[in-house]
Amino acid sequence: MRRVPLHRRLRLLAATLAAALLALLATGTASAIQPGGITDEARLMNDLFWIVTIAGLIVFGLVGAALVYAMIRYRRQNDELPPQFHGGGKIEAAMVGVPVLIVIGLFTISMIILVQIDDKAEDEALTIDVTGFQFSWQFAYNLNDLGTNTDPNAEGTIAVIGTPANDPILYMPVDEPVEFLLKSNDVIHSFYVKDFLYKLDLIPGRVNSFTVTARETGDFSAQCAELCGTNHALMRFTVRVVERDEFDAWVAAEAARQLGDGALVSTSGTQGD
């Protein structure tokens, strides 16, 4: 560093910029307190999130520091023309090589994690039929497809149907794989549970599915993530993860309420399709 005192205004400017960049860096680190997620799959995604974040912060720190250093160190001090350097083979090769290495590394890690997340559901997994509609949700459970404790001879379906004013609750058991089948009959919606760190679209004309295993009980807020019309913002729901016996008790109570004693009438599709 040359010992020439910095011009006051220039120093102010450089300090402002440096402070702004540092503040961003600090808030970036502190803010990225991404919820760790409550499912096995979410925890894998969270690992990847941190890998990308650390790589990004390193790149940001190095480039930002170089930028601020260059602005201070190479500020104009006289009329002498600086060396007219156009670039060179080795440096330009590094310009390509470094980003290539970074992105191939990140891509490889992403794919490894994607494969783990995409592991197909076990057949015995509980299946929940999710139908999005303007502007709420229906969650339907087939009584012969309830995962463990399923009575294969049971018939009928129980369903929870919400309204924009009355958010529905999606019950699911903890510590076992749950498969979601996503459907829509009107426009595109997106099933987004923040604490799953996951979303998947509900698309008219196709059925999407994914499987998660929740590891924490509790209530988790969720909502539609694809613009679907006037009350898109009100298309909220709650995911309630409970112990298996609590889940079974809820199913039994709903079956009795919706189907009556032994009545095997399906109530799904009552949203009017």
């Binding site: 995604m45 990308v52 990004g56 790149v59 930002g64 996951y198 993530a225």
Partner: peptide, 23 residues
């Protein structure tokens, strides 16, 4: 633009995009 490049890589990392897409 440097920040805009870095926060774009989150969406290239497919599983992270599942969380951040449309947010």
């Amino acid at each position: 633009f440097l920040i805009g490049g870095i926060n774009g890589t989150y969406s290239a990392a497919v599983p992270v995009d599942f969380a951040l897409h449309d947010t």
